[in-house]
Design a protein around this nucleic acid. Sequence first.
DNA 1: GATTCCGGAGAACAGTTGTTAACTGCATGG
DNA 2: CCATGCAGTTAACAACTGTTCTCCGGAATC
Lengths: 215, 215
Amino acid sequence: MSHIPGVRQAQKRKTRQALLDAALELLEGQSLSSLGLREVTRAVGIAPTAFYRHFRSIEDLGVALVEEALDSLHPMIRTTVETTGDGEERIARALELIAGHVDAYPAHVRFVTRERHGGVRVVREAIRDQLGRFTVEVGEALASDPVSAGWSAEDVGMLAQLYVDLMLGTASLFLEASGDETGEARERVARVAARQMRLIGIGREHWLDRPGGGG
Amino acid sequence: MSHIPGVRQAQKRKTRQALLDAALELLEGQSLSSLGLREVTRAVGIAPTAFYRHFRSIEDLGVALVEEALDSLHPMIRTTVETTGDGEERIARALELIAGHVDAYPAHVRFVTRERHGGVRVVREAIRDQLGRFTVEVGEALASDPVSAGWSAEDVGMLAQLYVDLMLGTASLFLEASGDETGEARERVARVAARQMRLIGIGREHWLDRPGGGG
DNA sequence: GATTCCGGAGAACAGTTGTTAACTGCATGG
DNA sequence: CCATGCAGTTAACAACTGTTCTCCGGAATC
């Protein structure tokens, strides 16, 4: 144990990664539920039977893709959440980060938004679990903010969920807009998303104004 | 022209509807992009080739499903939007309507949320267009509300989009929760969604408080 | 240096797919 | 009443699917 990876393991990881990459690319024009095992191996250039050396099924590969995709998302969320400055600055910075992530990992974003409600149960559940972790993390960041003083845990949770959904939706819209060369569509998406974040921020500031607001 | 339907046309519509119904049911466990033509005809009990008498392809059938699904959603949105009463009442009523719709048309809700970001381009576009219409309609209702006095069209639009996305997301969560017999999961979803609507409502009331809010 | 391990190849399997062509039977319109 | 239209059928097509079993060659282990 505690060996240097070894030529063998390294090669295996390489092929495994090639399978994941090929699958992600093939998923641009279809859903996981229609992705074929032979299709993926053909794209990689290996025999269909070699697939089983890495995954038991396409669903299994899908779950691996969820982890890869959400791992790449994780640092982004963390950075967003740690950003300092006043409301407007934070919003602008958050939108830059989201747009940057979509540019860097478009296939990951497409995969997550597509398969979140997609036809493969285990993959849906994997995405739900991972997004749940993110929501908790966002919730913790929100809770440590003075604006959230006096908030119940449930209220913090619902706000975190609102933010996560808005981020995902915005990422998906950025992805759709990435076909536009002029950047006009992207700008429109950013404007709308900024206003939505602003409105939620305002609601947040006045949440405890009225009796019963803090349930 | 202007004939009484006739036995022939009536039978054709019946088979066509049977195809749509069978497809919708088969789509519970997969995505449209993996749904097979033979699979659908087999479920209906007709020959595969008869499919072409009604649709040119599965994608074509998918677009027809979009119209059917969103047509059933339309009256619900309309009712929600026309509901009177104070904020809390409206929220409770809206959630009842959403939950009721999910109960009445679970397959429609599943189809729309799944294929909104799904693997079939024309279907995604059809859903986007139809949801765009809804958003406009919601926007018109919001604009005629005294709370929105002095709002720019763009701001009303972003708010409408926020509401539509929240409705869809909530519908999807209700659908997931419908497996639970006790109704406990459903209650949890309703509580969170109610708070989110409340927070958005608060943000709405204070939107014009600060300079620059009305962009 | 001999032996075990294991990622990958090859061939074959029974099923499945979408699409074609030519057909049948019945409701329709003249 | 007869001719046309047309929903649905049957048969056949080449191509594709996931999965099995057997084998090969080179790395890893002793």
